[in-house]
C-alpha cells in the first residue's frame, strides 16, 4: 500500500509523506501530525514526482521497501520524499554530479537518513555506484542524452521487470524542438529499448516543458 497521504484543503490536493527523519525539514516544508505520525508536505512545484502524481500518475510508482537508484538528486528535495516512501526497509542510491548542490543533499538528506547513500560522480559511469540491484531507476538530469544515460543505468542495475521514472526535460534535449515532439521521441527510445510505457504526463503547470514517463522494463513483470 502507498505511504503517500492525500488531503483536500481549500479545494486543492496536498500530498504528504511520513517523515523518516523526525522533526527535521529538508527545504522548509511544513511538518504536520496525522494519526500520531509526523508527515512532511510535498510541494509539486518543487518536486516533479509530486507533480506527476497530482497530474494523475499512480501513487505506487515508488513503494515501501523499494531500492531506488536516483540520478540527479540536486539538493535533495525529491530524494527526501522518496526516502520517506521507501522507508527503513528500502534504499535510495543518490547520484549527483555538481558538488555545489550535492553539498546540501549530503548534509540535509544523506546524513540524516539511514536509507540514503550519496555519490558525487558522473551518472555516465554506473560502475562507480553499482552497489545493488534496484527496483526503480529515477532519472532527472539536464543532459541532451539523458534518456541514453538512464537506459545505460537501467541496463547496469535495474531488476528485470523493474520500473523507470524518467523526467524528460525537453529544453535540455533540444531548445528548438516542440516539447511534445521531444516527449514522443524519448518515449520511442524507451520502447525500442524494451520498456513498456505504463503512463506518461506533461508536468505543467508545475514545471514548464517537462514530462514524466513511467515505464517498466521488459522481461518478467
Amino acid at each position: 500500500m502507498s505511504r503517500i497521504l492525500r488531503e483536500e484543503r481549500h479545494g486543492r490536493t496536498f500530498l504528504l509523506t511520513p517523515n523518516l527523519a523526525k522533526g527535521q525539514r529538508v527545504y522548509n516544508e511544513e511538518l504536520v501530525v496525522r494519526e500520531g505520525a509526523e508527515y512532511r508536505t510535498w510541494d509539486p512545484f518543487r518536486s516533479k514526482l509530486a507533480a506527476a502524481i497530482l497530474k494523475g500518475l499512480p501513487d505506487d510508482m515508488v513503494r515501501e521497501g523499494d531500492r531506488v537508484l536516483y540520478l540527479g538528486t540536486s539538493t535533495g528535495t525529491t530524494p527526501s520524499h522518496v526516502s520517506d516512501i521507501v522507508g527503513d526497509g528500502g534504499l535510495v542510491i543518490g547520484v549527483e554530479f555538481a558538488p555545489r548542490v550535492a553539498r546540501e543533499f549530503v548534509e540535509k538528506v544523506a546524513r540524516q537518513r539511514k536509507n540514503v547513500i550519496p555519490y558525487i560522480v558522473d551518472a555516465r559511469d554506473p560502475s562507480k555506484y553499482n552497489v545493488s540491484r534496484v527496483d526503480v531507476v529515477y532519472c532527472d538530469i539536464a543532459q541532451p542524452d539523458q534518456t541514453e544515460i538512464a537506459l545505460a543505468n537501467c541496463a547496469a542495475m535495474l531488476e528485470p521487470g523493474g520500473r523507470l521514472l524518467l523526467v524528460v526535460k525537453s529544453r535540455s534535449i533540444d531548445v528548438l524542438k516542440e516539447p511534445e515532439r521531444v516527449f514522443r521521441e524519448e518515449r520511442a527510445k524507451l520502447e525500442s529499448a524494451g520498456f513498456r510505457v505504463v503512463a506518461a504526463t506533461d508536468l505543467g503547470p508545475f514545471e514548464k516543458d517537462h514530462a514524466m514517463i513511467y515505464a517498466k522494463s521488459g522481461g518478467r513483470g
Binding site: 549530503v106 544523506a110 539511514k114
Partner: peptide, 23 residues
C-alpha cells in the same frame, strides 16, 4: 550490501565521507 543491514550502513558511512571529501 543486499540483505545485510550492517554492511549497508558501513557502505553508507564510507560513501558519505567520500562525498564530503569530493565537496
Amino acid at each position: 550490501p543486499q540483505g545485510d543491514a550492517k554492511s549497508l550502513q558501513d557502505l553508507r558511512e564510507k560513501s558519505i565521507l567520500a562525498a564530503e571529501e569530493t565537496i
